[in-house]
Amino acid sequence: MTIVYPVLTSQTTIGVTAPSSGLYKEEYTLLERAIENMEYKGFKVKVGDTSWMQYKAKSAPAKTRAFELNSMLQDDSIGFIFPPWGGELLIEILEHLDFENVKPKWILGYSDTSVLLLAITLKTGIATAHGTNIVDLRGRFSDPTTAMWEKVLTTKKGEEVVQYSSEKYQLEWQHNNESDYVFHLTENTKWKTISNSPMYVKGRLLGGCIDVIRHLIGTPFGNVRAFQKQFINNEPIIWYFENCELHTTDLRRTLVQMKLAGWFDHTSAILFGRSPVNRSIEDYHVIDVYMELAEELEIPIGYDIDCGHLPPQITFVNGAFAEVRIYNNAGMVTQRFID
Rank of each mutant, 00 (worst) to 15 (best):
M53H: 11
M53I: 06
M53Q: 15
M53V: 05
M53K: 15
M53N: 14
M53S: 12
Q54E: 15
Q54K: 14
Q54N: 14
Y55T: 08
K56L: 13
K56P: 06
K56S: 15
K56W: 11
A57F: 13
A57Y: 15
A57S: 14
A57Q: 14
A57H: 15
K58V: 07
K58N: 05
S59G: 11
S59K: 06
S59T: 09
S59F: 09
A60Q: 10
A60T: 07
A60Y: 12
A60W: 12
A60F: 11
P61V: 07
P61F: 06
P61K: 03
P61R: 01
P61M: 07
A62V: 10
A62E: 12
A62D: 11
A62G: 08
A62H: 12
K63L: 09
K63W: 00
K63C: 03
T64P: 10
T64C: 10
T64K: 14
T64I: 09
R65N: 07
R65V: 01
A66M: 11
A66H: 07
A66E: 06
A66R: 05
A66L: 08
F67C: 10
F67A: 15
E68N: 06
E68G: 13
E68S: 08
E68H: 12
L69V: 10
L69I: 07
L69C: 13
L69H: 09
L69Y: 10
L69E: 08
L69A: 09
L69D: 12
N70R: 14
N70A: 07
N70H: 12
N70Q: 08
S71I: 03
M72V: 01
M72P: 08
M72E: 03
M72D: 03
L73S: 04
L73E: 05
Q74K: 14
Q74C: 08
Q74Y: 00
Q74V: 11
D75L: 03
D75M: 04
D75S: 05
D76R: 07
D76E: 15
D76K: 13
D76G: 12
S77R: 08
S77K: 11
S77C: 09
I78V: 10
I78D: 06
I78E: 02
I78Y: 03
G79Q: 02
G79I: 05
F80N: 05
F80L: 10
F80E: 08
F80D: 05
F80Y: 11
I81Q: 05
I81S: 00
F82M: 00
F82N: 01
F82V: 00
F82Y: 11
P83W: 05
P83D: 00
P83V: 00
P83Q: 04
P83E: 05
P84V: 05
P84H: 04
P84M: 01
W85N: 00
W85K: 04
W85M: 02
W85F: 07
W85C: 00
W85Y: 09
G86F: 06
G87K: 00
G87H: 00
E88N: 12
E88G: 09
L89M: 13
L89Y: 14
L89S: 10
L89W: 11
L89N: 11
L90P: 00
L90W: 03
L90R: 01
L90I: 02
I91P: 09
I91N: 10
E92F: 01
E92Y: 03
E92D: 15
E92I: 04
L94Q: 02
